[in-house]
């Protein structure tokens, strides 16, 4: 087929191998930073999805798909499950449904680790966004093939 992605560029391809891990790392940074500064699961998820879309443009569809290992909808499922389950811990301490719970863990050497249900909700959003965006992109690519 003439309309396939045959615009492969060596520069983009080489650049992607360097940029891709950085982008993924950056998306995680955004996710965790969203705790009390601009950032968060949604924007982090978009960056991560953009990184994988970049792989798609630089190389080809199979390699972008193999980067993910699973079907993007399964990622949506995991994300949605984490987000939905993060509403439940509040029930066990007798608070209203979906009330935010905060824990702090003392880990030797590293200091205090602050965990909370909003963080898990955000991780769920992060995975959900990655999955949704990639499902849309992959579906469009599959139609094209």
């Amino acid at each position: 087929m003439s309309r396939q992605f045959n615009m492969r560029s060596l520069i983009l391809s080489t650049g992607t191998t360097i940029i891709l891990p950085l982008l993924l790392l950056f998306s995680l940074f955004l996710l965790l930073r969203g705790h009390d500064e601009p950032g968060g699961g949604f924007i982090g998820g978009l960056v991560a999805a953009a990184a994988i879309a970049l792989k798609l443009f630089a190389d080809d569809y199979p390699s972008a798909k193999s980067l993910l290992r699973v079907h993007p909808l399964q990622i949506v499922g995991v994300g949605l499950a984490i987000a939905a389950l993060s509403s439940l811990p509040s029930l066990f301490v007798g608070d209203n449904f979906f009330t935010a719970q905060w824990w702090s863990l003392d880990i030797p050497i590293f200091g205090t680790l602050k965990l909370s249900t909003p963080l898990f909700f955000d991780i769920g959003v992060f995975l959900g966004v990655i999955g949704t965006v990639l499902t849309a992109i992959f579906t469009l690519v599959e139609v094209e093939h």
Binding site: F42, T132, V133, A136, T139, L140, V143
Partner: peptide
């Protein structure tokens, strides 16, 4: 905006498939 983004992404895919 987020909802519109999701729904419109769906609409793009739908229209493309409909065109095919």
């Amino acid at each position: 905006i987020v909802i519109a983004f999701g729904v419109l992404a769906f609409a793009v895919v739908l229209l493309h498939r409909a065109y095919e």
